[in-house]
Write a protein that binds this DNA or RNA. Structure first.
Lengths: 239, 239
DNA sequence: TATGACTAGTTGTCTATACCAGTCAGAAAA
DNA sequence: TTTTCTGACTGGTATAGACAACTAGTCATA
C-alpha cells in the first residue's frame, strides 16, 4: 500500500491513496475519513507525515478539517471559484464602492415548465423565489433571482436577509457537487430596465448558474441581470 | 515582534509579519527572504514552525521555494487565472466545437493618444497591431485586437500565426507581472457587426485586458468583441 | 429531570532532532 | 590555468512526543 523504499515521499503516496478513494467515489462527500492517528498506525508512519498528506488535500479542496471532530471529504466548493466573477460584495468593496443587497421579494411560487425541467421537479411543484437587487453606492447594478425547490430545504426569510444560502444548505446536510455558469450579452427587457433604471433595449449581461448537490439533484437556478453601461466586471490578476 | 503569550499561533504571527513586508513592498518580487533556520533563530521558534508559516504563504502565492537556493518573493501569476475566461481555444474544445483563429491583419501603426497613454509610450510611437478573428466550427465568434509597443520586442508575423505571444515575450527575457481585465455588455458597431455577421446594434461582450511586465511597463492592450447571441461564457466548476 | 464534571476521542500547535537532496563558491588537485 | 572535490549553505522529508483546544457522549449528582 505504501512503499517505504520508493523514492516518492511517504506523504505523497498517502496523499495519492486518499485522493484516489475520493475520486473513485469510494469515500463520499461529507463522510468522515480515518483520524490522523489511525492513518499513522495503518501506514506505519508518524502522525506529522499523515498531516502533511492531509494538509495538501485540504489545500486542494478535497478534504475539510473540523477541530475536535475529524476530517471530512469536502463537498465541492463553488464559492471561491465563482468569486472572481460573481461575488458582487467583494468586488465592489475592492473598487471602493459601498455594496448593498436589497431583498425585493421572497415567496413560494409554482414552477413553470422551464424551471421544473432545470430543477428536475414536477411542473407546479413549489419553489422558493428569492429576488434581490444589488446596489453599489445606492445605485442599482443588478437583479439576481434565485430559485430553490421547497421540498429540498426549509428556508427562512430572516436567514436569507443576512446570511448565505449555502451555509443553510450545509446545515441541512447537503453538499454542493458542482455548478456551471454561463455569461452572455443581451438586451434589457421592460421589467428589468425599470428596476435597473436603464432604457428598454439597453445592453445587459446575463449570468445564469445552476448548482448541483452530491445527491445528483439540482439545488438552485440563479439568474442575474447586470446593467451593461455601468457595471464592468473587473478581474484583477495581481496575485 | 512575536508574542509567545498571545493566543494567536506563532506560525500565524510569523506569517502575518512576512506578508506585511511583502505587501508594503519592503521585500521586492524575486528577492530572497531569510532562510528558515535564520527565521527560527530570530523568532526563537523551531524550524518546523517557521515552515508552517512559509508553507501557508507559498500556498497563497506570496512566496516560492527553491530547493538548495532559498525562498523568494513571488512574481505574480496571470495565465492560469485568465484561462478560464479568455482561452478561447481550450474553451471551444471543451464544448466540442472546432476552434480556429484567423489572422486578419498584422501591421505596425502609430499609437494614437489613447493607446499611447495605455501603453505608456509617446503618441505616434510605433506599435504592432494584431487583429484576429476567432472561429468556432467556421462561424466567427469574436474579434480580438492586440497592441504591443514595437520597441519592446521584435515580433515576427510567422510566429504570431502559430505560437503564443507570451512565449516570445519570455524568450526576450520579459516576465508578466500582472494584468487586469474588464468585461461589459455593449452594442456592436458597424465594422464589428460586419465581421461577426450580426446586425449593427446587436448586443456584444467587450473584454479589455491590459498586461504589465515586471519592469513595470505595460506589455499589451487586448480588446475583444464577442457576439452576444451565440457566444456564452461557460464556467464549469467540477473540481 | 436537568446540570455539570469527567473522559476519550478528534485536530491544532509546537519542539528538537535527524538526515536527504540540491546549489554554489572556494579550496585543493591536476 | 583548469578541473575536481569538499564543505557549508539552502529547502525537503520524517520522526516521536508533548500539550492545547474542541466535541460529544457518559455518568454522577443536585
Amino acid at each position: 500500500m505504501i512503499d517505504k523504499t520508493s523514492p516518492l515521499p511517504l506523504y505523497y503516496q498517502i496523499e495519492e491513496a486518499i485522493k484516489q478513494k475520493i475520486d473513485k467515489g469510494e469515500w463520499e462527500s461529507g463522510s468522515m475519513i480515518s483520524s490522523e492517528r489511525e492513518f499513522a498506525e495503518k501506514y506505519e508512519v508518524s502522525r506529522m507525515t499523515v498531516r502533511q498528506a492531509i494538509n495538501n488535500l485540504v489545500n486542494d479542496g478535497y478534504l475539510t478539517r473540523r477541530k475536535g471532530k475529524g476530517t471530512f471529504v469536502s463537498g465541492k466548493k463553488i464559492e471561491q471559484k465563482l468569486l472572481g466573477l460573481t461575488s458582487f460584495t467583494e468586488d465592489m468593496k475592492a473598487r471602493g464602492y459601498k455594496p448593498a443587497s436589497k431583498l425585493v421579494s421572497f415567496q413560494t411560487i409554482k414552477a413553470n415548465h422551464q424551471l421544473a425541467k432545470a430543477l428536475e421537479i414536477l411542473q407546479n411543484e413549489e419553489v422558493y423565489e428569492i429576488k434581490r437587487v444589488r446596489l453599489a453606492n445606492e445605485v442599482p447594478m443588478a437583479i439576481e433571482t434565485t430559485v430553490v425547490p421547497v421540498k429540498l430545504i426549509d428556508l427562512k426569510e430572516i436567514h436569507i436577509k443576512e446570511g448565505s444560502l449555502y451555509s443553510q444548505v450545509e446545515n441541512a446536510g447537503y453538499y454542493i457537487d458542482f455548478a456551471n455558469q454561463s455569461l452572455e450579452a443581451s438586451i434589457a427587457r421592460e421589467a428589468e430596465s425599470e428596476i435597473l433604471e436603464i432604457a428598454k433595449g439597453a445592453p445587459v449581461l446575463l449570468i445564469q448558474r445552476q448548482t448541483y448537490l452530491t445527491t445528483g439533484k439540482p439545488l438552485e437556478v440563479v439568474h442575474s441581470v447586470y446593467r451593461g453601461d455601468r457595471y464592468k466586471f473587473m478581474i484583477d490578476m495581481k496575485r
